[in-house]
């Protein structure tokens, strides 16, 4: 899994490439915690390049959500598809996270 950061219209975007599983999710958790610790009001997680996500990845997103709650922060998911969207639905998390078709939509919502 590869992670990279960028800022779009002032909103931090985390781009993920590859699989998010028990082996790789600690890196993502660390990355997201950097933003939540700075109390970023909105973080966009770009899932377009993710082909596989398991419950460790889900737990990582939930962790970021919980860390953002005290300052009313928002973790937005962009472009989940295929297996990733399936796992999010199985976990009933599509109602918890704002989900968008693209990074631009997530940033400008």
């Amino acid at each position: 899994m590869k992670l990279s950061n960028r800022t779009v219209s002032g909103v931090p975007v985390v781009d993920i490439e590859g699989d998010v599983d028990m082996y790789t999710s600690p890196g993502l958790r660390e990355q997201l915690a950097r933003f939540t610790s700075k109390q970023q009001k909105r973080i966009v997680v770009n899932l377009e390049g993710v082909e596989f996500m398991d419950s460790s990845g889900i737990a990582t997103l939930v962790q970021a959500y919980k860390e953002a709650q005290p300052f009313n922060g928002e973790v937005c998911l962009a472009s989940p598809a295929g297996n990733v969207l399936r796992v999010l639905k199985l976990s009933n998390l599509t109602s918890l996270f704002p989900v968008f078709d693209s990074v631009d939509e997530a940033v400008n919502s």
Partner: peptide, 10 residues
Amino acid sequence: CADLEPGGLG
């Protein structure tokens, strides 16, 4: 699942 506690989801 949506109880927000990690673990047990697998």
